[in-house]
Write a protein that binds this DNA or RNA. Sequence first.
DNA 1: CTAATATCTATAGTGACTATAGGTTCAAGC
DNA 2: GCTTGAACCTATAGTCACTATAGATATTAG
Lengths: 146, 146
Amino acid sequence: MDYSIGQLSRETGCKVPTIRYYEQVGLMPSPPRTHGNQRRYNEAHRKRLAFICHSRELGFSPDAIRDLLSLSDRPNQSCNEADAIARQQLETVERRLAQLEALKAELEHMVHQCQGGTIASCQIIERLSDHQLCLNPDHGDGPHMH
Amino acid sequence: MDYSIGQLSRETGCKVPTIRYYEQVGLMPSPPRTHGNQRRYNEAHRKRLAFICHSRELGFSPDAIRDLLSLSDRPNQSCNEADAIARQQLETVERRLAQLEALKAELEHMVHQCQGGTIASCQIIERLSDHQLCLNPDHGDGPHMH
DNA sequence: CTAATATCTATAGTGACTATAGGTTCAAGC
DNA sequence: GCTTGAACCTATAGTCACTATAGATATTAG
């Protein structure tokens, strides 16, 4: 029913000191303790931590993750703010998806070519360096800059 | 034709000290200098830097980026190694895509729900915390663990 | 030629972990 | 109930990838 910090670490793949760090910076709540002062976690903690770890691996900053978590921390409430957060994060996610799709296509192309034994010409940088797919919205003049 | 480091920074959105840092750690080559010792970059530099910045924003580590860059640094060569790198990176990219798609679906669901004025119940963590979509391949027992 | 702006190197600081040291608690086996 | 080794605790220091600052030099618009 309950997890020690080490069990939680094994469940999530998140290292023990990192779990304590997330508690320190407020991404994870302070869990209850045994009378000997050791942390005890439950299923909700496990899911929250897994979500944090996955989001970090996807490149979201702790602040962005805080925003995403705040969406689930406020059920049954008025949600103008939540809507704004969701929309903004959705835009970010969509830009990342576009970039990753392009990268995937290029890698597939290379794997395909490599079956012949040599790389005729690798266009990976050329195809992925343009601002059309830039993640930074301040920076995109749309598809036809330069 | 040529860019100063500041112009390159404006073109790519990458900060000036970061460009120098990438040179220091070997992600960017040492460019030619003016007789007054200032760096001058060209189009190839610009594209390479844009690629690095985009990849970083997508959450790739500098080492993974080094691998990706090495694919384009060795045209017309035998490519067993390049193929292995491309395949491995392709797997990573595909896992990230799956996670991002799930996150996108959840955010869209929330934006949709929010039009009604309240969040009935946010399932964002529940839906994105399972290991089915875990980025770490060492950690996935497939769809039915726990 | 001058003055404002940009660049140079070197160094220090920040954010997000990650590792270490020295001590305490837990739990399995006797 | 007692022992004992693994796991846990806090505090602190170190690493990685930037990011900012200081003081000196270079470039360039006027």
